[in-house]
Design a protein around this nucleic acid. Structure first.
Lengths: 156, 156
DNA sequence: CGCTCACTGTTGCAGATACACCACATGGAG
DNA sequence: CTCCATGTGGTGTATCTGCAACAGTGAGCG
């Protein structure tokens, strides 16, 4: 808490700003997601919705909401709302429901598959824009990041 | 729009989900930002606020809001609001203001520098957690991503 | 000087997310 | 079987973000 010379403070800020991984990854995500959202707008789907739908489609079987949350690293509550929305659109459907009305497993409907297929061209454009800018190695590095952080011990 | 075999639809979804850069980067960002936010909570600062403050501190001189927006890849409107909030906290201050009340340049106050310095330990923990998990090459790859996308031609 | 035009800060608005919390579910121990 | 611990789905709430739109700004030019 002691007073610091202004030069010292600036050097310290530079050190943080320059190395901060949070800043750089956030910036990257903002750039990328904006492009995806812009392209996907015409299809009426959100990037998050595409993520959820495709993840469900990959599985092919009824999945539990919390599984999706885990795969995507999204809060369960957020997934719950997204599934609500997708259900209203008719793209997903509860495959199993407990007596109290909680959905325990969900599946993609035919309309959902169709919507995903329709969104593919837009998706492809965004994907191409990004992968055209970076080299293959960088993409591999991204995957290494993900697996590394998945395995990283969670503090607390 | 024609009907597709369910096998075909699943393969297509797998292709998208697996390769989607939007999905992977978003997932990475969620993992990383959650960790930063969790650590920073005790300091009362948000990751976004740390980004803004440190970026301003690095410059050392009064900066224009839109410059910050450009550096961080954040909307001008969002920066405007963040600056409002930081000003309420006393961490930034308008250095220049036009007659109509628009702030044209802002600076970090002493309290702002101090808040940044106080947040550094928490920041360090999050940073260490991440950089401990990934190798140096991956960090370089991240920077290549950023510069590449910055230079990428913007469609439309 | 006056005009134009690109840029900038701000605000209204709509949507999305996370956290805290609660009720229900599930499975093992006694 | 009962009880308890853990996990899971859903809701309330607060916050944040981006887009669209608008008014002010300022540099360049006739």
């Amino acid at each position: 808490m002691q007073h610091q010379g202004s030069e010292e403070l600036r050097r310290r800020a530079l050190w943080m700003a320059d190395r901060c991984l949070g800043r750089r990854i956030a910036r990257l995500q903002r750039l990328v997601s904006r492009r995806f959202e812009a392209e996907l707008r015409e299809s009426g789907l959100t990037l998050a919705q595409v993520e959820v739908l495709s993840e469900m489609a990959v599985s092919g079987e009824p999945v539990r909401p919390s599984e999706i949350a885990g795969w995507l690293g999204i809060e369960r509550s957020t997934i719950s709302r997204n599934l609500d929305l997708l259900a209203q659109l008719g793209y997903v459907r509860a495959a199993e429901t407990s007596a109290t009305g909680r959905t325990t497993r969900v599946v993609v409907t035919d309309a959902g598959h169709q919507a995903l297929a329709d969104a593919q061209p837009a998706w492809e454009r965004a994907q191409a824009w990004i992968s055209g800018a970076v080299d293959e190695d960088a993409v591999d590095a991204l995957d290494r990041w993900l697996t590394a952080l998945e395995l990283a011990p969670r503090p607390r």
